[in-house]
Design a protein around this nucleic acid. Sequence first.
DNA 1: CCGTATTTGTTCGTATGTATT
DNA 2: CAATACATACGAACAAATACG
Lengths: 268, 268
Amino acid sequence: MADPMWRQIAEDLRLKIESGELGGGGRPLPSELELRDEYHASRNTVRDAVKWLTTRGLVETRPGRGTFVVTKIDPFVTELSTGIGAGPGAESSAYISEVGIRRRTAEVSAPRVEIHQAKGLVWDELQVAEGATVVSRHQKRYIDGTPWSLQTTFYPIRLVELGATRIIQAEDMPDGVSAYLEETLGIAHAGWRDRFTVRAPDRAETDFFDLPDDGRIAVFEIIRTGYDDSGDPFRVTITTYPADRNVFVMNVGEVPAEARVDTPGPDG
Amino acid sequence: MADPMWRQIAEDLRLKIESGELGGGGRPLPSELELRDEYHASRNTVRDAVKWLTTRGLVETRPGRGTFVVTKIDPFVTELSTGIGAGPGAESSAYISEVGIRRRTAEVSAPRVEIHQAKGLVWDELQVAEGATVVSRHQKRYIDGTPWSLQTTFYPIRLVELGATRIIQAEDMPDGVSAYLEETLGIAHAGWRDRFTVRAPDRAETDFFDLPDDGRIAVFEIIRTGYDDSGDPFRVTITTYPADRNVFVMNVGEVPAEARVDTPGPDG
DNA sequence: CCGTATTTGTTCGTATGTATT
DNA sequence: CAATACATACGAACAAATACG
């Protein structure tokens, strides 16, 4: 059986968009009423077609304005370290070096510090008793003023009891909490495990990153568990990035310097 | 202003689904006509609500059957190596060890070998002349019989001319092409760069992974560029995985063995 | 195998609200 | 304020897929 009419219209629009026949130069697509006449369909049918293009991320509609082709933005390139030498990531100043594209300015909000009872993933990763007290430090991170990532780190309260009292203060620690823990308690950050997933954004992420309500743009989630030299976990960091504007780069072994954080060209 | 009615219905359904009140035990949600009566709305409005849940991946609808809650499948866990010692990944036999969850069987299709003219990304990465000849080896990879990933590797034709003639044969190379290149031409795989992105699936991926047509499930794309000990690139591998059923793990430094490829518990 | 009831999919028409120009 | 464009909501009819007796 042939595709439904809305699908055929969507396909036709897609081709005309990709060829530049429609929507070029920031001009809107024809209005729904114009498309209705052009395709001899009802307005609801052309709306179904446009809706499909919207879900695919090709266009976006604005009330009172029209339907516009989405121009893909230049992605943020983040380099993931693959060795202890590079450091597991400081809280603010050092993470800037993770951002590959220079000429961009990174900012970090003051941390929001909270006390929780460990459960679920955090409990599982930190290997504390269920319901044990943990400290979380939550930060919003920006590049060039646009929301870039949300980050929350969980520490067992034990670290505070042992004397690392600054982690329950709502002040940014530019050199990183890990460096502070090593200075104060002698905890060496011997290794970490990163876990990468992609999932639909929750409400907080949708709001912060200004993602569409329909959840079509996923978030990239990196869960980093840090271990000391006894093999015991002492922190869990969960960082989320909008998947539509982030690229991650990992270099292993000898990689020529000039290629390390290059931006990809068009697909081939 | 209050949320539109379809949004409120969707939210109510979401809560009832997550509490288990609806859709438990493989039972379908109430039919559209039942929901229409329950919420005193039109059928189209409840369809809008269900459509939103569908886009969020919470439910799926089947013609003639009903609307069913989507049960999230156990993800495939792939460990990414962070050192040359672990090896950059062989073509078939060795990659099985990448898959963290044991008791799963991995299969690989015979490679489809093609000759192309380099352009776009491949040209950019391999640093050959534009339009230069490259060889591609494309494989479909399965775990437990379900489609797991699509992989294409590009090599400059120069390698074949130098004597590595087996890479243009459509036979699987269980020990990996890299090992073969080292044996045959003495090319040492000194390092590589991985680039991670998330994007909407193309038609081939939608078909192979059996993803929904609306593009709501993204694919995870890893572009690996391999360099020899002179710092020259000699291969580009593009691997895509469906984002809804894959997790990637990277261990850096000293990480306790028992935690290396663990599956995450429920979120907290 | 056939026919019927059920359920979702498609398409149309219409009216009204809201945002922008 | 008026015109334009998209958003929401309702009602209706038929098609297609599925389940069941």
